[in-house]
């Protein structure tokens, strides 16, 4: 096993090299998107992402929840509503996708790059996922009412995390 792992590293590089990951969702050519965004950016301050036809929503904490509110604004390059809940797309992820126009995406079925994620919906009981996604810089929505905890708690704050979220907590602006 150890030999195979090191052999694999030699062949394909470190597992963290996410560029190696297969991307199941079509990712438009970066250059083309960049120039298209530039062309359309005449009325936009520099540095703003092209929001295409996506609508933003606000996600508030639910009963006994913590953090937020978070504004979820999918953009042309960052349009996936990532559900890491097991058992398919969680209804909260589906509602965010429906309201914003983003694409609901099951993390147990396919792979995506972090820079394609508008947000992640988790059903974490408090230790692992609550910290992993804030650490990776992804806006994190926990459907359970957790508060920052676990070894990765230092990465969680009110601007990247909201919990106790039900479908009623997802609101238009």
């Amino acid at each position: 096993m150890a030999f195979w792992e090191s052999f694999k590293k030699v062949l394909v590089g470190e597992p963290q090299a996410r560029a190696q990951r297969e991307v199941a969702v079509d990712k438009p050519d970066e250059g083309a998107v960049w120039s298209a965004a530039r062309t359309r950016a005449s009325g936009m301050p520099d540095g703003r992402e092209d929001i295409g036809g996506y609508t933003k929503v606000v996600v508030e904490k639910g009963p006994r929840g913590w953090g937020g509110p978070l504004t979820i604004q999918p953009t042309k390059n960052r349009n996936l509503i990532y559900s890491v809940t097991g058992g398919g797309i969680h209804p909260v992820a589906q509602k965010i996708a429906d309201m914003t126009g983003g694409q609901a995406f099951d993390g147990f079925k396919s792979k995506a790059e972090f820079d394609q994620l508008a947000c992640v919906v988790i059903n974490c009981g408090g230790t692992a996922r609550v910290g992993v996604y804030p650490m990776k810089g992804v806006l994190t929505i926990d459907v359970y009412p957790t508060s920052p905890s676990g070894p990765l708690a230092k990465f969680i704050n009110e601007h990247n995390f909201v919990s106790g979220v039900t479908e009623e907590c997802v609101k238009g602006t």
């Binding site: 147990f108 972090f114 692992a128 996922r129 992993v132 990776k136």
Partner: peptide, 8 residues
């Protein structure tokens, strides 16, 4: 599970 979870 996705890789960002399996690595932990």
């Amino acid at each position: 599970a996705p890789e960002e979870l399996t690595e932990h």
